[in-house]
């Protein structure tokens, strides 16, 4: 059977749901091996958290170089793994790091690359939604290993338990991957809310909050939703940049997206318009965001959201 590699995705030392999504798509094409890149001594803990989805084996590579040399070191290691294992495909999560790693591995192995797939079929045909979700494209890599980055929250994950075999591989990172040195790293502050790109529901606030995210957060919590923000809100310092949705922030495609006090600029739409259902609260009936809304309320978010929060809480109890 052919072998498909996935790059296991972590938040801190926890394997993300995205990993199971990658595995689910990869398993349609062959036996799945998850690559775990770890600091020396940390491999076993990370590998142990890779326990959901159709994963046959875990390949642990430990090196201090991954923290120091970032994307370049990871790409170098993965290209070496590809040379050893000759897989048919490599699936990586579509975020800044994942796409950069995929890009470098594509060059290193002279392979084709497809980014931001929302699905991958059994013959490695990738589905992408391009031009702001207005067009569906099906494409296939025609050279080398099929390198595909998959957008989180797009593929329904098989979350069944798995007990993959763990293999340790020792590699030497090439000197050509050690040119840029990371001297310090600060991970994003994690709140208690669901992760933005993984959440089923996202409630976002914009300039209309006027800096007060209380109503947005309250409504989000009633729905167990993640909180997003427009660039106007992150630029003003009202909400951390890591929560920005849009072209230069995160791309989300939850089951439900609620835009509150957000006008719907093209750069914001780029990050949310493939959401399955979209609801809008905005006091300007002419706001372009209403064009995307399945349900729109023309009104003041400070009146509408608290009432809705109460309503949701009442229904749930």
């Amino acid at each position: 059977m052919s072998q498909v590699l996935i790059l296991a995705d972590f938040a801190g030392d926890k394997c993300t749901k995205t990993t199971a999504e990658l595995a689910t798509a990869a398993a349609r094409n062959g036996s799945v091996t998850a690559i775990v890149l770890a600091a020396p001594g940390a491999g076993a803990t990370l590998a142990a958290s890779v326990k959901h989805g159709p994963i046959a084996s875990v390949l642990v590579v430990e090196s201090a170089d991954f923290a120091t040399y970032g994307v370049a070191a990871a790409s170098d290691a993965i290209a070496q793994v590809i040379a050893q294992k000759s897989p048919t495909a490599l699936f990586v999560a579509s975020h800044a790091y994942g796409k950069e790693v995929a890009g470098r591995v594509a060059v290193a192995t002279d392979s084709g690359i497809i980014t931001d797939a929302v699905d991958v079929s059994a013959d490695l045909t990738a589905t992408q939604l391009v031009f702001g979700g207005s067009t569906t494209v099906h494409s296939k890599v025609s050279k080398g290993v099929a390198i595909i980055t998959v957008r989180p929250n797009s593929i329904e994950a098989d979350l069944s338990d798995s007990t993959p075999a763990v293999e340790n591989l020792s590699l030497t990172i090439s000197d050509s991957a050690k040119l840029a040195t990371t001297t310090s790293s600060t991970p994003p502050v994690k709140g208690g809310r669901p992760e933005l790109t993984e959440a089923q529901i996202v409630v976002s606030g914009g300039r209309g909050t006027n800096g007060d995210f209380g109503a947005v957060e309250g409504f989000a919590d009633s729905l167990n939703a993640a909180v997003g923000a427009s660039r106007a809100a992150t630029d003003a310092g009202w909400y951390p940049h890591s929560h920005q949705v849009g072209q230069t922030g995160k791309t989300v495609s939850p089951q439900l997206y609620v835009a509150c006090g957000i006008s719907g600029a093209i750069q914001h739409r780029a990050g949310m318009q493939t959401s399955k259902t979209i609801a809008v609260v905005n006091k300007d009936p002419e706001a372009p965001i209403f064009d995307l809304a399945d349900f729109g309320v023309v009104g003041d978010l400070f009146a509408v959201l608290p009432q809705a929060t109460q309503g949701v809480t009442a229904q749930k109890s």
Partner: peptide, 11 residues
């Protein structure tokens, strides 16, 4: 600056 946090890098 990415969703994975903030890093200082030099070369």
């Amino acid at each position: 600056t990415t969703e994975a946090g903030v890093d200082a890098i030099n070369s």
